[in-house]
């Protein structure tokens, strides 16, 4: 594990400014949290728990009603103060009229060597599978393709950290997998990723998982700990159940197997891990 912190928050509180002038209930309550280089963090929590606010703080987009300490590592990103944040609706974040234009202008702005820009942009678009659509007008792209465009932008400038807020929620299952796989590949190449989702089947065993509830961080640990039930396999004994999270199918099956007397180690989170665990257990 690399110890260099990409972003560090300490005691950050965010209070929304309401129209009537009163500060309301804080959305984030003294949150301390850091993302280390090359780390994958999956951020989960119920509606209104403060996930999106947290992402905006990480991105440096919130300037009002915020207190506490925020430190960023990367010099380039620090110069503009803002890290790109990919949202459910990426429309307003795309400046070019086509994916190609968008990435090219992004690279121009980031001071890349002029002669390499086109090749770099096309390479990034190819790697997210937008090769055939890079000259298509942005407004004719599907939601997933727009997200891939935004992600390709992060790739093209070798962003050391990617912030993605429920990007798969409007996508069909195939597109969701494509986007998730694309981001996982970027992570393997060394980018840190903060991934917000409601779909727990997107978790992988090695992920660091952070649960937010009522503006606070309630859990920060490995994905496998999240679903660990006590030794008797008692229902509601895992952390996920206590926070009303819907465990993935593989986990629920493993729990049922535990009741049948078969304990799978490590606890499988995905279907593939479940099949593997069943095989190893028997073999």
């Amino acid at each position: 594990m690399q110890e260099k912190a990409e972003i560090m928050l300490e005691g950050v509180t965010v209070t929304p400014a309401l129209w009537n002038g009163n500060g309301g209930e804080p959305i984030l309550k003294g949150v301390s949290f850091s993302v280390r280089s090359g780390e994958w963090v999956t951020l989960i929590g119920g509606n209104g728990s403060g996930k999106s606010t947290m992402m905006k703080v990480l991105a440096g987009m919130l300037t009002k009603g915020i207190s506490g300490m925020i430190a960023r590592q990367n010099a380039r990103e620090a110069s503009s103060g803002i890290i790109p944040l990919v949202l459910q609706q990426p429309d307003a974040g795309i400046i070019g009229a086509t994916p190609w234009e968008d990435i090219v202008s992004l690279l121009e702005r980031n001071g890349a060597e002029a002669s390499t820009i086109i090749a770099k942009a096309e390479e990034a678009l190819r790697s997210v599978g937008l090769e055939e659509r890079m000259r298509q007008p942005v407004e004719t792209l599907s939601g997933g393709q727009k997200q891939l465009t935004a992600i390709a932008g992060c790739m093209a400038v070798n962003a050391s950290i990617l912030l993605l807020d429920e990007v798969t929620s409007m996508l069909d299952p195939i597109m969701s997998r494509e986007v998730l796989n694309g981001v996982r590949a970027l992570h393997r190449d060394g980018s840190a990723v903060v991934w917000v989702t409601q779909k727990l089947e997107e978790l992988r065993s090695g992920d660091r998982v952070v649960i937010m509830h009522d503006g606070e961080i309630r859990f920060d640990g490995k994905a496998s700990e999240l679903f660990r039930r006590d030794s008797r396999g008692e229902a509601n004994s895992s952390i996920a159940e206590r926070y009303g999270l819907e465990p993935p199918y593989a986990v629920r099956t493993a729990w049922e197997l535990q009741r049948e007397g078969i304990l799978l180690e490590p606890l499988p989170l995905t279907i593939e891990e479940l099949a593997e665990a069943v095989l190893n257990d028997e073999g």
Partner: peptide, 26 residues
């Protein structure tokens, strides 16, 4: 709101300050 989102996106791309010498990728 859209304008604000766009402004954020532009700032995230480093449009906050004008570079001394523009780079033309194309």
């Amino acid at each position: 709101r859209i304008a604000e989102e766009m402004a954020d996106a532009l700032e995230a791309r480093g449009y906050g300050s004008m570079p001394a010498k523009p780079v033309y990728g194309f």
